[in-house]
Design a protein around this nucleic acid. Structure first.
Lengths: 157, 157
DNA sequence: CTAATTTAGTTGACTGGTCAACAAAAATCA
DNA sequence: TGATTTTTGTTGACCAGTCAACTAAATTAG
């Protein structure tokens, strides 16, 4: 019985972060597969295209995207260059501040965006449809509180 | 206004999986940092030690751990060998089925487990303490439903 | 009993993502 | 103005994780 309770206690304490990690890994894998099959791009590439595409005709600053996505500098830089190489995005250094890059989608990039957005939106919708509205709210609220607690702990350390 | 609503709509549709990914990334980074600083092991190594350690004096089958953790074969194999090299875990091939490996912690491994478990439990506890019990239940329930929906979609495809 | 299939594990190649060192432009300040 | 610091981005090295090819042991079917 001691072993059982020990084991249960451990599984229990590990429940939250481990479960979160597992679910997230599966959602991630699903998104990666969909994007690879339907658009031939990576998840980080899609996120950049999505944000630039959401800007419509306006150009979007690279630094803003990086900030919004919370991505690493290095990862973002490489992702962006791959997108430029593949001809989905154009980059123009700001005339005022030459460190800044203003991004826009090419015609090919726009076509990819228009084709891929409904697919990804449909996925989001079907995921959301598994939950009632109040469950969805509770999930988001719980995630926010967890995130705030990680911040709080990070500050303390 | 069109740009605004487009942008908002996009941020909204991206909310759930993106928010989940961000929170999980931060939780993961926190766990990795704690384990590196206090125990000098990786997260995947800790999870193996945690499961083997939870078995107490009983040996635990490698295949069972792999299944419980949902880890890739290759990752698990390499993680295990690093643990054996470092002297935290011993592996003994099953006398009946020579493909199976029965794992146990060495004395060093047990010491590491005993030292690290309370640290990780304390972390879990403080994360949980950010949520009321019903919020925690709602979060777990929401995650389960999401996971089930991913399964359902995966089956369909 | 042998052949085919399944299961467990190992290995190499590859991608994604993090970290740290660096370069260049801009802002701050003496 | 010129020196220092800050911000922005690039690059190389590295670790985590996935995938596919392979080996070996066990099981199943003929």
């Amino acid at each position: 019985m001691t072993e059982e309770t020990e084991r249960d206690a451990l599984q229990l304490q590990d429940f939250l972060t481990f479960r979160l990690a597992k679910v997230q890994a599966r959602l991630n894998a699903q998104a990666i597969r969909i994007l690879k099959d339907t658009a031939g791009i990576s998840l980080s590439q899609w996120r950049v295209i999505a944000v630039v595409g959401a800007g419509g005709e306006n150009t979007v600053l690279a630094a803003d995207i990086k900030r919004v996505m919370g991505y690493d500098k290095g990862l973002f830089s490489r992702t962006l260059h791959r997108l430029i190489e593949q001809g989905f995005v154009t980059s123009q250094t700001d005339t005022g501040d030459q460190r800044r890059q203003a991004l826009a989608l090419t015609e090919t990039g726009k076509a990819l965006f228009d084709r891929t957005l409904p697919i990804m939106q449909a996925r989001q919708h079907s995921l959301r449809s598994a939950l009632e509205q109040d469950e969805l709210d509770a999930l988001c609220s719980g995630l926010e509180k967890l995130e705030a607690e990680v911040d709080r702990q990070g500050q303390a350390a």
